[in-house]
Design a protein around this nucleic acid. Structure first.
Lengths: 202, 202
DNA sequence: CCTCAGACAGACCAGTTGGTCTGTAGTTCC
DNA sequence: GGAACTACAGACCAACTGGTCTGTCTGAGG
């Protein structure tokens, strides 16, 4: 057989290529032609699967980025009894986001958020949902921690979860700004210190 | 006698217009024509004062953004004896960054940082310096606080200052993502809680 | 006054970009 | 096995974008 057709695979290839281009250059900086070149496809394929560049952006946000966040954080935060340990474990994995030899591009979700949230209501809506979901699973873990005694009773789980997400994104963002992995290590040390203050008083 | 010429003023007008456009659309999203329209000037003026779009971006970063950070934070952090109170005061002023009726665009420095740091070494270099300066004045304030008893001895001033900047940018970033000023209020509450942990143990 | 360099206006250009359109080869269904 | 539909290839286009260039007016210095 010649090259067997596989529309689902083609669409997935386009999404993956688009994700990488958006991750590196931002949504506005992403060029349709570059996505096509990376995917090894042509305009025909692109506009067969996606209505527009904007539609592709939405799809990347929903399917790739949303899927990743959902998988890593939703699964990660239900591990074990101790929410702080679960957080630390998931954050551990973030250290490997940097691709050797390439500039550190930060967090895909936050990148799109900071670029597009004020510019495009469609992006903003989905971004907000993704953050809320992310914060939600952490908040729930904190609430469970308050039950099993790993987290101090006095804190507001959702408020603290929001701040934790903000702090994580801040640390990643500073690392991206400095382009130095050491920045993340140093920031993360302080973040761990803060997380320690969430434990019950001895 | 007619419209008196004033090259310095013209340049400043261009910088201000460019700052606004970059603030709203990002550097890549900023269009030279839009800057000109906002400034009420033409191509001739632009390329007389600036070599390129990139050169304008550098100038905005150095002069407008760097100038603002330097003024607000360097001056703010030497006020009074208590660094935490000084921080709270400067953060208070940030609540007014939102322009009524317009989408909330976050922090100009962080916007450019997240967009351009991995893409352009010239931007990255200056961004890093601005962050380091910002972190520096906070770290120095913490160190003074350790002397005068307002800050706990055990902390690493520079490490904590870095985390504080990260946390602030994280809170602003989440607010931008949600496009809801209430997000900043809630995040900021937790940030204040964290800052409280930096005080000496009673 | 009279240069002459500086400070712009504004027409113009070449390359880029998102998007369209026609053609054609697989696929499926009967 | 032949419609009919799907999944692309790839040429093409109009709009946009950063940047250039020439001309003109201003104002400072001689």
């Amino acid at each position: 057989m010649t090259t067997t057709r596989n529309p689902d695979q083609t669409r997935a290839t386009l999404l993956d290529a688009a994700f990488e281009e958006i991750f590196e250059h931002g949504f506005q900086g992403m060029r349709v032609d570059d996505v096509l070149a990376r995917a090894g496809l042509k305009k025909g394929a692109f506009y067969h699967h996606f209505e527009s560049k904007q539609a592709l952006g939405y799809a990347v946000l929903n399917e790739i980025i949303g899927g990743f966040i959902g998988k890593r954080w939703t699964e990660g935060m239900v591990q074990g009894e101790d929410p702080i340990q679960a957080l630390e474990d998931v954050i551990d994995k973030m250290e490997s986001y940097a691709k050797p030899g390439k500039p550190f591009c930060g967090c895909p979700l936050n990148n799109v958020a900071q670029e597009m949230a004020p510019l495009d209501a469609g992006f903003q809506e989905r971004i907000e949902q993704l953050f809320e979901g992310w914060i939600g699973v952490i908040a729930e873990a904190f609430a469970r921690g308050q039950e099993n005694g790993t987290i101090r009773k006095g804190i507001d789980p959702h408020g603290v979860a929001m701040f934790v997400v903000a702090a994580i994104e801040g640390c990643v963002g500073l690392t991206k700004a400095s382009q130095d992995p050491g920045t993340f290590t140093r920031c993360r040390e302080q973040l761990s210190g803060y997380l320690g203050t969430l434990r019950p008083n001895p």
